[in-house]
Simulated scan of single mutants.
Amino acid sequence: MNVKSIMECERRSLEKMKKYQLPNKFKKIGIGIIVLSTATIITNKLSIDNIDLTLTAKYGILLGLLVVSISKEKIEDELITNLRMQSYAFAFIAGVLIALSNPLFSYIANTVFEKQQENFQGMGDWQVLWILLSVQVFYFEFLKRMNK
């Protein structure tokens, strides 16, 4: 395989990625969903205390993070696409490491400080998805600011 065919293959894969992105205006919509869901959780904790409303708001936060994550930037060039891919890779690795280490640290802390044996519990689906999406969004923003 020569260099030109490798570069052509990379260019085509980057072009395919653009098909799965939302327009830039959806970034503001995603942030709005996150803010509304967070306000709903806070209000629910302070006054209503409805478990179903809390669960719906938690998944609203995930939806907002996903919308922000897949929204295009105002200027979508090769650098931004590369930074986006780096942030997805970093989020995946960080998410797996956190998902594997968090239950172990919780078990050790519970055993040491509470002096009782608890069952070894893993993380829930919401926690894993929240870690993946939030790490990706924040790391992507960090990479953008570092490359300006």
Score class of each variant (00 low, 15 high):
L53R: 03
D49N: 13
I41F: 05
I48W: 09
I70K: 01
K58D: 05
G60P: 06
P23W: 11
I51K: 15
I70A: 01
L63F: 05
K45C: 08
I33E: 06
K72N: 14
I34M: 09
K28G: 01
T56C: 03
K74D: 14
V35D: 05
L36W: 07
N44S: 03
I34W: 00
I75Q: 15
L46N: 11
I41N: 09
K27Q: 06
P23V: 09
N44P: 11
I42S: 04
K58Y: 12
K72T: 09
E73R: 15
Y59K: 08
F26N: 01
L22S: 02
I31H: 01
K74Y: 08
G32L: 07
L62N: 09
S37W: 04
G60K: 10
G60Q: 09
I70C: 01
K58F: 08
L55H: 13
I29E: 01
L65C: 14
S47W: 12
L62M: 07
F26Q: 01
K28L: 08
E73Y: 11
N50M: 04
K27R: 14
L36D: 02
I75V: 15
S47D: 04
L65F: 15
V68M: 15
I31M: 11
L46S: 11
T38P: 00
S71V: 10
G32Y: 10
V35C: 07
Y59E: 00
I48F: 09
I48V: 12
L65N: 13
I70G: 02
V67W: 07
T43I: 11
K28I: 07
I61C: 06
I42C: 04
K28D: 03
K72W: 07
V68Y: 06
T38C: 02
L66S: 12
K25P: 02
G32H: 09
K28Y: 12
L36E: 02
K45W: 13
I29A: 05
E76P: 01
S37P: 00
E73H: 13
S47M: 05
I70R: 02
I42W: 12
I33T: 03
I75S: 14
L63P: 03
T54E: 15
K27I: 00
V67G: 03
A57L: 10
I31D: 00
